[in-house]
Each structure stands twice: as structure tokens, then as C-alpha cells.
């Protein structure tokens, strides 16, 4: 027994090495989110003449590990808007809780307003997009960003289909089709082929928009290593949000992989030095 009470309960230096008191410091730098931890990959969406279609797969990755395979990244808001989240999943959870509170408060106000005027105006998708962009921009200003890329789909004040994007820096913009993350590289060109302008979207049917989005999800699954073949698909129209959270990619064809070296299961035969050179020359004439 040590006669110094101060020593009781402390790790012994000879066993554990000298204790590093920096762990006890209380006045260190404030550490805000510095990188995303558990992440979702692309969210994609395209407008059509009566609304918007949005999709995101159900995977949450931990680095390269496919950690959670049943994660819903599309969230309806007040029954007429859909919000899709890419990036950090915990920040997404924070935001969805926040939006849930906002929706409840909004309903209180709506209850009061509609009784007075016979139909108050709900917070629409364009309003929500503005709100989220201000929220994200405020967080970037305090160097504590919410590590997400967000798509908001629904209708604007004129009753026209609305599709907008916000990222972790608060950069907000709209477009006939939008994609976050990997989707911006792989899906956006495909969607733009069908909806290059607002005018194109006004001629696009719902079925066509759904087909394009499904096609894009397939391309993303082929090429995005952090993606999954199970995904959520949401369609927003004047009638509300139709959300299906258990879609499965159909009619996949992996034939293309056969022809790509390093993609499939080809084995590399061991070659001698001169053989290697001639094999390489054959590959890259």
C-alpha cells in the first residue's frame, strides 16, 4: 500500500510507462468535424413534367468497409418534399432530427394560419432548400461543417417542380438534374443526355424519368466501389411523395467487366522479362 493517497488508483509508471497528462487537458483546441466517418455515396435526381425523381443506395460505408447495408438516405419532409443525403451519416441523422422538429413546428403554425386564412402556405421545397443552405453556410462559417451533400426535391412557390443542391460549404444551386459525389461524374452526364434544359424536363414523363434514374443507379453500382445494388427511390408529384426504400437493381450485365483488365477475375500468368515486355507492347501498341 502506498502511503500517498494521490498515488492510489493511478497506473504505475513501471508497468504502463509515464502517464501522458495531455489526455486530461481540458483547454485544448476545440475539435469540430474534420472528416466524415460513416458515409453515404451519391444521391441523384432528375425533374420531369409533373415532379421529381430521386434515388440513393442503402449503403453506409466506413472507409472502404461496407458497414451498414440498410441505411435510408432519402427523407420525406412534410409529405410534399424529399431530402436526399450524401456524406456523413451522423450529420444526416442530426439534420433529419432537426427537420423533424421543424416539420412539427411548421404544422403547428400551419394549423393556426390555415384556420385564419382558410389555407396557409406550407414550407415548400424551394423554401427548405434556402433554409438548409443557410444552415450549412452558418456551420461552415463556424468551422464546424455538417459533412453532407444534400439534394432537395419538390415544388416551388409557383407550383413548378423544384430540384436544388446544398453542400457542406453552403454552396446552393438548382438544375434540371443533379447528382452528388460520384454521381456528379457518372450519372449527371447520362441524365443531362435526357434533360439538358428545363424545357426537356417539361416534356419528360414520369416513367421515363424513373427509367433514367434506375439506369444511372446501375451505372453507379458498376463503377462506384462504395455503392450497393439495394437502393431507395422517391417520386415527388403534386399528390405527395411516393417512397420505396427497398429497390433492387435489375437486369445487371457484367459482361463488360470481362474485357477490362484489373476489373474482373483474370489471372496474370508469370512471364519472363522479355515476355513481359512483348506482352506490354501488345497491350499498348
Amino acid at each position: 500500500m502506498d502511503h500517498r493517497p494521490q498515488a492510489w488508483g493511478r497506473p504505475r509508471d513501471d508497468v504502463f510507462g509515464p502517464y501522458d497528462p495531455s489526455y486530461l487537458q481540458t483547454t485544448g483546441p476545440k475539435t469540430a468535424t474534420q472528416q466524415p466517418i460513416v458515409t453515404g455515396t451519391s444521391v441523384i435526381a432528375i425533374k420531369f413534367k409533373d415532379g421529381v425523381v430521386m434515388a440513393a443506395d442503402n449503403l453506409a460505408s466506413y472507409g472502404s468497409l461496407a458497414r451498414f447495408t440498410d441505411v435510408k438516405r432519402l427523407h420525406p419532409f412534410l409529405g410534399h418534399t424529399i431530402v436526399g443525403f450524401g456524406g456523413d451519416v451522423s450529420d444526416m441523422q442530426y439534420l433529419t432530427r432537426h427537420l423533424n422538429e421543424l416539420a412539427i413546428d411548421e404544422a403547428y403554425d400551419h394549423e393556426a394560419a390555415s384556420a385564419q386564412s382558410g389555407g396557409g402556405s406550407h414550407l415548400n421545397a424551394a423554401n427548405l432548400h434556402k433554409y438548409l443552405s443557410k444552415l450549412m453556410y452558418r456551420r461552415r462559417n463556424s468551422f464546424d461543417p455538417l459533412w453532407n451533400a444534400i439534394l432537395v426535391a419538390g415544388f416551388d412557390s409557383q407550383g413548378k417542380p423544384f430540384l436544388g443542391s446544398v453542400d457542406l460549404r453552403g454552396t446552393a444551386f438548382t438544375s434540371p438534374s443533379l447528382a452528388t459525389g460520384f454521381g456528379a461524374m457518372l450519372a449527371q452526364p447520362i441524365m443531362r443526355k435526357y434533360a439538358a434544359t428545363e424545357g426537356d424536363t417539361e416534356n419528360m414523363t414520369r416513367d421515363e424519368a424513373v427509367r433514367v434514374v434506375k439506369e444511372c443507379m446501375k451505372v453507379l453500382f458498376y463503377r462506384d466501389a462504395r455503392s450497393l445494388d439495394r437502393y431507395s427511390l422517391a417520386v415527388v408529384t403534386k399528390d405527395g411523395v411516393e417512397l420505396s426504400e427497398d429497390e433492387q437493381l435489375e437486369q445487371q450485365s457484367w459482361a463488360f467487366a470481362e474485357r477490362i483488365r484489373g476489373y474482373g477475375t483474370q489471372t496474370v500468368p508469370s512471364l519472363s522479362g522479355s515476355e513481359t515486355i512483348s506482352a506490354l507492347l501488345a497491350l499498348y501498341p
Binding site: 502506498d2 509508471d13 513501471d14 502517464y19 497528462p21 495531455s22 486530461l24 483547454t27 485544448g28 483546441p29
Partner: peptide, 13 residues
Amino acid sequence: PNYSFSDAPRFSV
């Protein structure tokens, strides 16, 4: 055995 008593941060910011 000896024990580490110093709780003071080794560096300050």
C-alpha cells in the same frame, strides 16, 4: 513504482 502526478498539459494552445 513511481506515478505520474503532473496533470498539467505538456503544451498549451
